[in-house]
Amino acid sequence: MPTGQQPPDALTLPSTAREELLPKLDASVLEFCAFKFPVATPVARARTHANTDFFSRSGPTVADYVTLRNIPAPTKEVVDTVRAAAPSMLRAGYKSLVCAHLSQTVPRTIPLYMLDFWDEVHALRHIQRVWVRSEEHLRKRRRLYEKEKGGSSNAVIQHTYDMLGLTSWYGLLRGSQEPEPMVMLAEYLLPTTWLRTAHENQMANLLKADL
């Protein structure tokens, strides 16, 4: 490897950073819903930059995970574009990222693996939105029931909350024809969501198991 060139894995989020920056894989659904992702840069305020604006030949000046996690994430389009250019920039000797999507009063450079982190953030934020919408609907149902019943709680709703506090947000549901992501369960709680074939197969399998 030429002197000064970063190793290829510099673009990959290390396991230690993953543990600090992203939700734990064994976190419950409720814990996942409460997890704070970086603020997303509004698309309307995103500015056009050349790919080279996002790279620096200097090493990272910011490395602590709390600061890194709180840096607003670029838009998905920007992340995809810069990430596609990253391997060639890495080979050219660039060692860190510049937050060109932000107005910076103090120059700072961050690890290249933040592109990998931001890419995961965009994917996980979508999953989190589905679970949050489901939990909000469940909470509304509970408030409505308690109002109608003079403060008493519904056993089914409470049991559902208990399970959301025990069930991991990450993983695959098995027992049906094809494994499905755990977030599939959230769709059962959304009254305006059309159930897919996977839901029908899952309910059919549950019915068969009871017969």
Rank of each mutant, 00 (worst) to 15 (best):
P2W: 10
G4H: 08
P8I: 11
T12P: 10
T12I: 15
P14Y: 07
E19P: 03
K24E: 10
A40C: 11
R45K: 11
R47W: 01
R47M: 06
T48R: 13
N51E: 08
T52W: 01
F55H: 03
S56A: 09
S58D: 13
G59I: 03
G59P: 03
T61K: 08
T67I: 04
P72F: 06
P72R: 07
T81K: 12
T81M: 09
V82A: 04
R83F: 07
A84T: 11
A86W: 03
P87G: 08
M89V: 02
R91T: 14
K95D: 05
H101P: 02
L102A: 07
L102R: 12
L102Q: 11
S103Y: 13
I110A: 09
P111V: 06
Y113E: 01
L115T: 09
F117Q: 01
D119Q: 12
D119P: 01
E120A: 12
V121C: 14
H122F: 08
H122K: 07
R125T: 15
R125N: 14
H126L: 15
H126D: 15
I127W: 13
I127S: 13
Q128P: 09
Q128T: 07
W131S: 11
S134R: 00
H137W: 10
L138R: 11
R139P: 00
K140T: 13
R143I: 13
K149N: 12
G151L: 02
N154H: 12
I157D: 07
Q158Y: 03
M163A: 08
G165N: 10
Y170H: 10
L172Q: 14
S176Y: 04
E178H: 11
P179H: 01
P181Y: 00
M182A: 04
M182C: 04
L185I: 01
Y188L: 08
L189H: 06
P191S: 01
T192I: 06
W194N: 14
T197C: 07
T197F: 08
N201A: 04
M203T: 10
M203N: 07
M203L: 15
N205P: 00
L207F: 10
A209V: 07
D210N: 12
